[in-house]
Computed example of a mutant assay.
Amino acid sequence: MSLLHRGWSLLPRRMRREALFGLMALRAPRIARPAPDGQGPLAHAGYFSAMSGLGTAARRLQAGLATRGLAAAQIDLTGPLRQGPVAPGQGTARDVAPGPGTLLVHVNGPMLPWALVELGRQVVAGKRVIAVWNWELPVLPADWRRGFDCCHEIWAGSRFTAEAFSGPVGSSRVPVRIVPYPVLPAAPAALGRDAFGLPPGAFVALQVFDAASSIARKNPAAAIAAHGAAFGDDPDRILLLKVHNTARAGEAWREVAELAAARPNVRVLDASLPESELSALILACDVLVSLHRAEGFGFTLAEALALGRPVVATGWSGNLDFMDAPGAHAVPVQLRPAEDLQATYDVPGAAWAEPDVAAAAQFLRRIAETPALCRPPPHAFPAPDYQALLQRPPH
C-alpha cells in the first residue's frame, strides 16, 4: 500500500466522502442553460447491476418505460460508481449518441456530479438531464446540494420524497415531480415452500431487507418483537428474515442475529435471490412484515400487494402512497430523532418513525386467525404516462 493510499484510508469516512464528491463536482460537465426541451433520444443511467434498493429502482423504471413503448438506451453505472460488480451485457455511455435528447440519471444527489463525469461531456452536452432520486428521511443531508446544480428536473417516487427534495437544501431551485415507480414483480419461479425449508401447514410471516441499507432503518428487531408478542414460540407461527449483505452491517447485524437465534420460530435466510425466486418466496409466505422506521418508496411492500399478499407495515413515509390498497395494514407510529449505528441516516434535525409493536402484533394475530386476509386481491400499480411527462417539462 502506498503512503498516499494509506494516508487516504486513515481519514474519517465523512472527510473522504466530502473530498471525493467535492472533486467530482469540480470535474462534472456543466449542463445546458437554459434547460433544453429534451426532444430526441432517451437514455437512462443507473445502477442496473446492483443488488440494492437503488438497483431495483433503476430496473423497475427501465421496465416501466418499456411497458409504455419507450426505448431508452441503458447505461450501467454500477461499476464506474463502485456500487458492485457489473452483470454481463450492460450498456455503457458509448451506446448513447451525442446531441439533444433526454438523460434520466438514477443516481442520488451527492453522487450525481460523479455520474456526469463518468457519462462524459459528449453525452451530457445539449441534453435535458432529469435526476431520479430516492431518499428515506424528511430532510436531506447538506452534501445533496451539489446534485441540484447537475439537473434540470427531479423525479421523486413518492410524495414523501418529493417533499424532502423541495425542502431547505433544495430551496426550490429545481422543479420536482412525483413520478411513482411502476410495480412489476418478476414472474415467480416454480418454487414452493419446500424449496425454502418452510413447513406446509405453518403461518409464515416474512421480512425482506438489505442489511447494508441501515439495520436501524429496516428495524428487524421490531418485527421479531411483534412476532413474539403475537405468537410466542409457537412452532406453527414462523417469522422468516430474508436478508443479504450482512457482512457489511457489522455490529448492527450481530445484534439482530442474536435476537433471532434466541427465538425458535424465527429463521434467517441470508442470501441474494434472483427476482423470480424472491417473487416465489413472497407467494410461499402468508404476510409481509416491515416495521421500518423510514422508506422512500417500499418496493418489496408494493410487490407483495401486487402479488396478492397482505402487508403489515409502518404507517409513515413513502409507502403511505399505497397503504390504502386491499391487504395493507398500517401500523401507527410516533416520531423520534433518527439514530443510525451505520451512520447512513445521521442527519441533523431528522426524525423517523417508531412503530407500535403491540399494534403490529394484533394485526399479525388477526391475519393468522382469518385465512381470507392472507389472500387479498392483487393490487394494480400502473406505470405513469412517461411520454406525457417527457413532453411537458415543468415550469
Results as ranks from 00 to 15, higher is better:
R6F: 15
D236R: 15
L116E: 07
A212F: 11
L116Y: 09
R248D: 13
P377F: 11
G197V: 10
A216W: 06
P98R: 08
F381Q: 02
G53S: 09
L239M: 05
V289P: 02
N219S: 07
A383D: 02
A358R: 14
G38S: 02
P41F: 07
H379C: 14
Q62C: 08
P220G: 08
P371Q: 03
V256Q: 00
A226K: 14
R336M: 14
T370R: 03
L241R: 06
G250Q: 12
L259N: 06
C151E: 05
F148L: 14
S158C: 01
K242Q: 09
S158A: 01
L373T: 02
L103E: 05
L364Q: 03
T56E: 14
R217Q: 08
A380M: 02
E339V: 12
D143Y: 07
L364D: 01
V256Y: 08
R14M: 08
A187P: 09
A313L: 03
A45Y: 07
L269N: 00
L241Q: 10
F297W: 15
G109P: 02
L61Y: 14
K218R: 07
R248F: 14
D233H: 10
G69M: 03
G147I: 04
G22K: 11
A262I: 09
H379Y: 11
T370H: 12
W114G: 10
S172T: 11
A57E: 01
L65F: 13
T300P: 13
A249N: 08
A388L: 15
V268I: 15
V204N: 06
N134K: 05
A28D: 07
D321W: 11
V256E: 03
G298N: 01
L4R: 11
A195G: 07
R13W: 09
F322N: 00
V287G: 03
R193H: 05
P310T: 06
R366G: 05
L77N: 01
D356K: 10
W133K: 10
A72L: 05
P274Y: 12
L119D: 01
E277R: 12
L373Q: 09
D95A: 15
S166K: 13
D210I: 05
L305Y: 06
P384L: 11
L273M: 12
F21E: 11
S290C: 05
G192Q: 03
W155F: 15
S171D: 15
C150V: 08
G298I: 00
A72N: 05
K127C: 00
K218V: 02
G69Y: 06
A229R: 12
H5T: 15
A247S: 13
G250A: 15
A50L: 04
L239E: 03
E251Y: 04
A262F: 00
T300Y: 14
W352D: 02
T92G: 07
D95V: 06
A284Q: 07
A28F: 12
G38L: 01
P393N: 09
T56G: 13
A162N: 00
A212T: 09
Q74G: 00
V243G: 09
P34Q: 15
C151A: 04
H329F: 12
P199L: 15
L104V: 04
L112Y: 11
A380H: 04
